[in-house]
């Protein structure tokens, strides 16, 4: 196990394995999102309360889930980078930041579009919406830091620390609807309780979440491969690629 992980952490091995993984992941993502979309827009019934407007859940919840999942992934990478000095962790962190920022944007914009007809407002400064907005600014902060510092080691270190400190926001987003009075409702799917959603609506939702997750892996791997090539441009294995 350790030997396998160690091998994977070598840039050359990572570059090759990522290249092999991408086509498989693409097929899987198309299947999952395809079934998810069919369920979301055609097969699943309308909601008893919200009618067809609730169908936005199938993109809003996966986006919001991914916006937090990617951040946790980056926090894990930051830890690996700062404590164990694993270079590949910085590559994955760099590759993930902009995808996470886009998912945060999607979670906010789809939530806003959903909120207008159901709640009666595009936006409210409640704890859930505000903490998710802060997550967006954390992503932008990481991206800005990456582009502002020229020295790569300093840049990686500074952004890893920012990511780690900012990870305190993740439990705040998750528990905001329980800690404070909010307009946003509680969690529909949680690990510990039976989902508060009918099975015919649940399966497409789970499929969409899984599909978005695989999508993130694909785009992250493409970006990480680009980043690895750039960082290792002077090494022999990269030069051998073009022989």
């Amino acid at each position: 196990m350790y030997a396998f992980l160690y091998k994977l952490a070598s840039p050359k091995k990572f570059y090759q394995m990522a290249g092999q993984l991408i086509p498989w992941c693409s097929g899987l993502a198309i299947l999952l999102i395809g079934y998810g979309l069919l369920g979301a827009l055609v097969l699943s019934p309308a909601d008893y309360q919200q009618g067809d407007a609730y169908r936005i859940i199938y993109i809003h919840v996966p986006s919001a889930f991914l916006s937090m999942f990617i951040y946790l992934m980056m926090a894990f990478c930051a830890l690996l980078s700062l404590v164990w000095r694993i270079k590949l962790a910085d590559v994955v962190l760099t590759a993930s930041a902009s995808i996470g920022a886009w998912f945060t944007f999607l979670a906010l914009i789809t939530g806003s579009i959903w909120g207008k007809p159901m709640w009666g407002t595009w936006w409210i400064w409640d704890a859930r919406l505000t903490s998710e907005l802060i997550l967006g600014f954390l992503y932008l902060g990481v991206i800005a830091l990456k582009s502002a510092i020229p020295n790569r080691e300093q840049k990686d270190k500074a952004s890893a620390i920012l990511v780690l400190v900012g990870s305190i926001n993740i439990p705040i987003i998750h528990y905001s609807v329980y800690w404070w009075n909010t307009l946003h409702q509680g969690a529909t799917i949680s690990r510990f309780a039976k989902p508060a959603i009918a099975p015919s609506m649940l399966y497409p939702l789970l499929s969409m979440i899984a599909g978005f997750l695989v999508y993130y892996v694909i785009v992250m791997l493409i970006k990480a491969r680009t980043e690895v090539l750039y960082r290792e441009r002077r090494s022999t294995w990269v030069k051998e690629l073009f022989k």
Binding site: L41, D52, A53, R55, I56, I59, H60, S63, L106, I109, T110, I113, W114, K116, P117
Partner: peptide, 9 residues
């Protein structure tokens, strides 16, 4: 509401 949300995604 539904279609613009899907389109932007």
């Amino acid at each position: 509401y539904v279609w613009p949300a899907y389109a932007v995604t």
